[in-house]
Nucleic acid binder design. Structure first.
Lengths: 302, 302
DNA sequence: GCGGGCCATCGGAATTCCTGATGGCGCCTC
DNA sequence: GAGGCGCCATCAGGAATTCCGATGGCCCGC
């Protein structure tokens, strides 16, 4: 039995599904299946019941899950303690992104961290809110930018700023969208994001409050792709207001005059990693950049 | 970082010596070196100072040693908890031997365990007190028979019986050893055992109390080999009294008329494994065989 | 009855780990 | 001062383990 067996066990227990667990663990489904099989054989206990709908913890599996978490927590505590003992902080911090580098002030962050901790490497990993949270939970990210609300007690997050959103339309649609009402907008084709993206929630809330459903034309889970499709005339989309404004000035997009609620841009990490010196290093410099006091604090109010 | 890294770390810390640690871990010295190197690189901390005399824990290594032990203890607790949850006890118990199977009542033990726990396999691994204790500490044995005193708090042991010992001589030496005094015996050639064998301690104590030293002719660390050498006329040796008596009746050995102190035959296991259901299964059946009440008890008085 | 979802297995590839041999360094003895 | 020994680090090759894409079996829903 090794720690990777336990990580797999815990992840499968949380997902109830081998394929989803393999995605969180960034490995393949047969690998996850083999980990569980090997662990069950070594422990001599069935951890899961296999059902057509997925993996269901057995009573024994439920009892052992806590011990597995304790073992992983002890190992994690050792790693964190080690980082506190380093002469100079050494390591790599993998940070998930959910929007463009300039908006997130990544260059300044990189410089600040490099200045304060020469032996800490940052890895900026493109993603989106929907992919980043699972990767964070799976331990594949050390911290991540996300947008929207966050109420998972296993995750700590700090609000960096409020992202103001706007409805973007192809420049050619300007005339027919001077002062549209919501049903008129719903009747237009839309470029959707994935459901786990905060923009999607804003869009859905908008239409639900007017009892109508937008026509989904296409889906794009990257902001660049969404912007390109809107500019290309495929449909409407929700983007950050400052981006739409800049594009409108350049004649590439039309900003539909409508007020949308903002979403909170956050920096998030696992609650149990908050004390990790590597995470602290990033939070500290990020806080300085955004004029905030991030650190070992109560979780920001949702 | 996996659990085998931590096992290596703890063992090297205890031994202060890569080669000795590799022997305890039943692996090779380069493998142990690589484990430590990999762990130090991952943690970003030097765990040991390399000296010509061996590996010396750094201050950071000393601090992390406790965390490593906690992690291993948590993993071990999970495994024990799993065994308690098995429908039927499943597993293998590796038992170290230090004398012949008949004396240790192994056949009866095997039958009793098989009857009570059909899915528990016993592995009887030949050894001696000197090799068995390191193997037990290294986790390569689950339990072991040993002889002699035991004062290591990390090990629990139960006295099964007192082994009466006797000095055996080649049958041809009968005439010159009718009623020998100790200096006379010391002047004879002797077949030694290794120093970690309890018989060695008895022999040394005998001569030290008379201020003389026996002549070492040859060394044998297996009882069979020792018996063969004594029968072959190479020298004297200390053996179990019942074995010498049986051989004398058959004319193969001469039992030198002299009283020796007895040594305690014990069953030992790691203190932290006492609660392990597999170990409990063996102790329970063994206790029934020897008419004793072994189990979750205070350690037997030394 | 058919298609889809889910997990288990297989064979081959990739990666990791181990081992025997060997080298470098420091210390001790002659 | 030189040589030998002890100890750890490295190397190359082999062994073992793990991973992955493909595929099969079973169950469920339409």
């Amino acid at each position: 039995m090794e720690l990777y067996h336990l990580r797999t066990f815990v992840t499968v227990a949380e997902e109830g599904h081998l394929t989803r667990a393999s995605e969180r663990l960034f490995t393949s489904q047969p690998a996850v299946s083999a980990h569980i099989k090997a662990l069950e054989e070594e422990l001599g206990v069935a951890l899961f019941d296999r059902t057509p709908r997925g993996m269901q913890l057995t009573p024994a599996g439920t009892q052992l899950l806590a011990s597995a978490r304790q073992t992983l927590a002890a190992a994690s505590a050792l790693q964190q303690q080690a980082r506190g003992l380093q002469d100079q902080l050494i390591g790599t911090v993998r940070i998930g992104l959910n929007t463009d580098a300039r908006f997130l002030r990544l260059i300044a962050l990189q410089s600040a961290v490099a200045e304060a901790h020469p032996q800490v490497a940052l890895e900026f990993l493109a993603g989106n809110t929907g992919a980043n949270l699972p990767a964070l939970r799976a331990g594949k990210l050390d911290a991540t930018f996300i947008s929207g609300e966050m109420d998972d007690p296993a995750i700590r997050s700090w609000i960096l700023c409020e992202e103001e959103l706007a409805v973007a339309a192809p420049a050619a649609w300007r005339a027919r969208l001077e002062t549209p009402d919501v049903p008129t907008l719903a009747d237009q084709p839309w470029v959707f994001t994935t459901e786990d993206c905060s923009h999607y929630g804003v869009m859905r809330a908008l239409f639900q409050s007017h009892c109508c459903t937008p026509r989904k034309t296409v889906l794009a889970n990257q902001e660049d792709a969404l912007a390109a499709m809107v500019e290309g005339g495929i449909g409407l989309g929700i983007m950050r207001r400052d981006v739409v404004e800049a594009a409108q000035r350049e004649g590439r997009l039309h900003l539909v005059p409508m007020q949308l609620p903002s979403v909170s841009l956050r920096m998030a990490c696992l609650a149990q990693r908050v004390a990790d010196p590597l995470v602290q290093a990033v939070l500290s410099e990020l806080g300085a950049l955004w004029g905030l006091d991030l650190a070992l604090r109560q979780r920001a109010s949702a």
